[in-house]
């Protein structure tokens, strides 16, 4: 038990440290730049004439007051953290006067509901395929490996566009944009759920397809490595059935894949967020896109922070799970 405690303690410490650094960066990076973001943005808003001058003025004043932009940097940071902890990210420029937290609150549900299952399903399918390729080897492997390699190199947004054109525009078997039919108001009804499910298909499968490739390639080499391990030979010579040994091998090959997922989840989520834009899926990716196009600074800042926290949490949870399922972790803590 002591080994576990040490491992989890370490992981929690790391989570806290990276979180702090991420928050600091999120706060500091925009402020390190030569251009004053608020002035630039309000200037741009006024220039575009999209918002009337008094609204710009109101936004500017609200922003200055809320975040204390006229105060020293450390005071600003303190305010930033205090507000962030309370879930207060200010008022959106582009959807004034809607609070940023409200926009993000509704977007995050869509993103999590889309990406979490998609990445998990892609991970599982990819590992199965990779294991199969390693075990069957001849012929099958020759076809599957190049295909997986090719698939894993299709960018997520490219896969999204191709899927959208084939299944949405040409075959018309799935809707191409949004999280639900545009003429519906979210509520709990059978029609709405059906609409949500049909809108879910294309974004879901395009993320799944992209993640399969990379996982399959990794799992294949891991499995080949394990199949050549000494314990395989030994177990065979003790009369254990091949099917049982394959079980050992795939379990052992799968475990590092959990860490692999933890390490690549940031990149995967990044790609998947961009795929959201293609489908105008009402998640964080599309929110970020509209925030960028509308130069909505508070919304961008909050979205990036939330995405970082999501990635850090996902990594942390995967690390914890890994600690439980791989006994090597416990052993390593005693060394």
């Amino acid at each position: 038990m002591k080994g576990y405690r040490k491992y989890f303690g370490k992981k929690i410490l790391w989570f806290v440290i990276t979180l702090i650094v991420a928050v600091v960066l999120n706060f500091l990076l925009p402020r390190l730049m030569p251009v004053d973001p608020v002035a630039a943005i309000t200037g741009k808003l006024a220039g575009q004439g999209a918002t009337d001058a008094s609204a710009v003025q109101r936004i500017y004043e609200h922003y200055m007051q809320e975040f204390g932009l006229d105060k020293p940097t450390y005071v600003q940071f303190w305010l930033f953290v205090k507000n962030a902890v309370r879930g207060n990210f200010g008022i959106s420029f582009s959807q004034y006067p809607r609070p940023v937290s409200d926009i993000i609150g509704s977007a995050i549900v869509w993103t999590v509901a889309l990406q979490l299952p998609a990445i998990l399903v892609g991970w599982i399918l990819g590992n199965l395929l990779g294991a199969l390729a390693a075990y069957i080897k001849k012929g099958f492997d020759k076809v599957l490996l190049p295909v997986s390699l090719f698939l894993s190199n299709v960018p997520a947004f490219g896969m999204a566009v191709v899927m959208l054109v084939i299944f949405g525009v040409t075959l018309k078997i799935a809707p191409i944009a949004g999280g639900y039919a545009y003429d519906m108001i979210p509520h709990l009804s059978w029609d709405f759920i059906k609409s949500v499910i049909s809108h879910y298909q294309l974004p879901f499968w395009s993320i799944v397809l992209v993640s399969i490739g990379g996982q399959a390639v990794g799992m294949r080499s891991m499995s080949i490595y394990e199949l050549n391990a000494d314990y395989v030979k030994y177990a065979r010579f003790l009369g254990i059935k091949d099917s049982k040994i394959v079980g050992y091998v795939f379990r052992n090959a799968m475990l590092p894949q959990v860490t692999g997922l933890a390490l690549s989840i940031g990149t995967m989520i990044g790609g998947a967020l961009v795929a959201e834009i293609i489908f105008s899926y009402p998640g964080l990716g599309s929110t970020m896109y509209s925030a960028v196009t509308a130069a909505d600074y508070p919304l961008i800042s909050a979205t990036t922070l939330i995405i970082t926290i999501m990635v850090l949490l996902a990594t942390f949870i995967l690390d914890i799970i890994y600690g439980f399922i791989d006994p090597r972790v416990k052993a390593a803590q005693f060394e």
Partner: peptide, 15 residues
Amino acid sequence: VIPSFVLLILITYSL
């Protein structure tokens, strides 16, 4: 651990 994608967005946006 901090996703480089997010850093990229922050930096390029701020630029």
